[in-house]
Amino acid sequence: MHFTLKIWRQAGPRAKGYFEKFTIDNVDSDTSFLEMLDMLNNQLVKENRESIAFDHDCREGICGACGLYINGRAHGPDDDVTTCQLYMRRFKNGSEITMEPFRSGAFPVIKDLMVNRSAFDKILQAGGFVSVNTGSAPEAHTTLISREKAEESMDASSCIGCGACVASCKNGSAMLFVASRVSALSLLPQGKPEACRRARAMVLKMDEMGFGSCTNIGTCQMECPKNITVANIARLNREFLYCKRSDLQ
């Protein structure tokens, strides 16, 4: 297969970006999207041209490092996959493919297709955990948790922190990301005592980091590679609203 690639280039956070076009041939249909980019980069090395910077690590759809805006969609044309799980057989031979970084106000571009998502870490540092010290946990079976609850928590906890939700939201909101962690923990008895404090702290941090607010459009759910649903946002709102002031002291 062969393709024309239109790729966003940007030397640094403050540099002016532009699209650059490349062509690539002899791509096997079983090649993954990122392997196709590896091929391109190796081609560039052979021409002594600077390779294209993009984030990736596990290449199995679990670490959340990769994330490209491909032909106008976060993680490309397939539903429920990350960029690294996309295969070239999905594209029409000879077609043009456009690649951009996950753009959003809170995700400044570092270089080319790489963005800075450290705002996500900051949000989780504000409260995305259970405050238990090592060594103080009771025997695991002390608290029973129904399979349904555990599964529901697991669904929410599947978020990989890739940022597709933010990049595809026209408000640049991180509500789905925040809601997934808040839900995953508040659905479990261990996470309950801190539930409202957690919700508050994380939402406030999200606002502070420059993410937009949610207007119930739902693109985030559609573009989430892990199928995190907006039902989690409803749960977050509940936790947030029912939170008594006294709980925050």
Binding site: V132, S153, M154
Partner: peptide, 9 residues
Amino acid sequence: DHCVALGVP
């Protein structure tokens, strides 16, 4: 025990 306490589903 500790991982359950930390909220591992």
